[in-house]
Design a protein around this nucleic acid. Sequence first.
DNA 1: TGTTTTACTGTACCCTCGGTACAGTTGACT
DNA 2: AGTCAACTGTACCGAGGGTACAGTAAAACA
Lengths: 204, 204
Amino acid sequence: MQEVRAGKREQILDVAGVNVIEKGFAATSIEEIIVEVGITKSGFFYHFSDKNELAKALLQRYIDMEEDIFRDIETRAYELNDDPLHGFLISLKLLAELAEDLPNGHPGCLIASYCYQSQLFSADIRDLNAQALMAWRMRFQRQLEKIAKTYPPRMEVDLADVADMLSAVADGGIILSRVMHDKSILPRQVMLYREFIKALFITH
Amino acid sequence: MQEVRAGKREQILDVAGVNVIEKGFAATSIEEIIVEVGITKSGFFYHFSDKNELAKALLQRYIDMEEDIFRDIETRAYELNDDPLHGFLISLKLLAELAEDLPNGHPGCLIASYCYQSQLFSADIRDLNAQALMAWRMRFQRQLEKIAKTYPPRMEVDLADVADMLSAVADGGIILSRVMHDKSILPRQVMLYREFIKALFITH
DNA sequence: TGTTTTACTGTACCCTCGGTACAGTTGACT
DNA sequence: AGTCAACTGTACCGAGGGTACAGTAAAACA
């Protein structure tokens, strides 16, 4: 078997993942993927019936990875401080540090990337994308509502919007970092969002 | 002359602009553009030496249009209230209303779209993109510093970050709106940023 | 009025890429 | 020994980006 290391399917996803984030899905040719992996075109189509299947697998893997990251951060944060507000503030600090430690900055958000190429993909991929953002909203909103029980919000805001704002600031921060070639922007934006959370829940 | 209405060059940019925002640059074929405009391939290459030139013209036009919109909003806002803080808050309200009134939601930010396809473009296009974001930062930062003179900030924040946050929230809000099929997200995010500005500068 | 320029059209061609089809091969497992 | 998973090899199709270059109709200029 040619499966020298870790299976070609995973290697295809690795290579495709990097290239899609770099130049977009349409501009990532199957040709360049198979060359980089060291595989034939037949090999590629053995694993994925068409390019759309690759896109779906890529997105699913990305969503699962992000889910893992958020779950880990949340777990660690509430281990350090089980108060809902301070746990959340620690989560945000950990998130900012994670972004800061990436050597070349955040590589990019696949959901944002797909968003601007959505017409290329089938409806189920667009649904997957929407579900992922909805899951993030739920995750953050749940924590915010827990906070609000002990710390009544000092402004009249919809906590779903506040939850969405973290996704927005993160996706926007990634774009700013990439375009302006300044990887510090993303972690700074996360920390600024953290200031907003403090202003929203803490009385001074 | 076949120039029945408004010049083919502008029509090419109109059609390409819509399609690029919808499905990305690489996925927008010259073929479909010329069919929609009613022109031949030769006609296309008469106006643009290659696809990269189209991308550049498209981006430049987009940046100029956004510049006009921001300038108009700023002018109108400070006509209504010449206090720096309240003028800025009115700007944000006007911006949110503008986003709300778009029948199909915001079509998308070309800068964000290009960001995830940057490897397709020449260095001067990437520079143009970075300059545009820098111009937005300067525009907002200038206003924030004016505010800070009369209203000392109630948190320790870098005003350049606060300025960037508007770009981030806007770009992120557009992505969330598009992916989640909810055009209200973008205006709500802008209004939430407005709450942050109030919390940052107003003492209660 | 003649000439030049602008804004295209028409034709023909090359290369890359996504995708299809299908037969063959190789190593692991049963 | 036979089956199956994971490929390779070959051959081909159509769409799309891009090139090259000759021709043309109308407007602008001199």
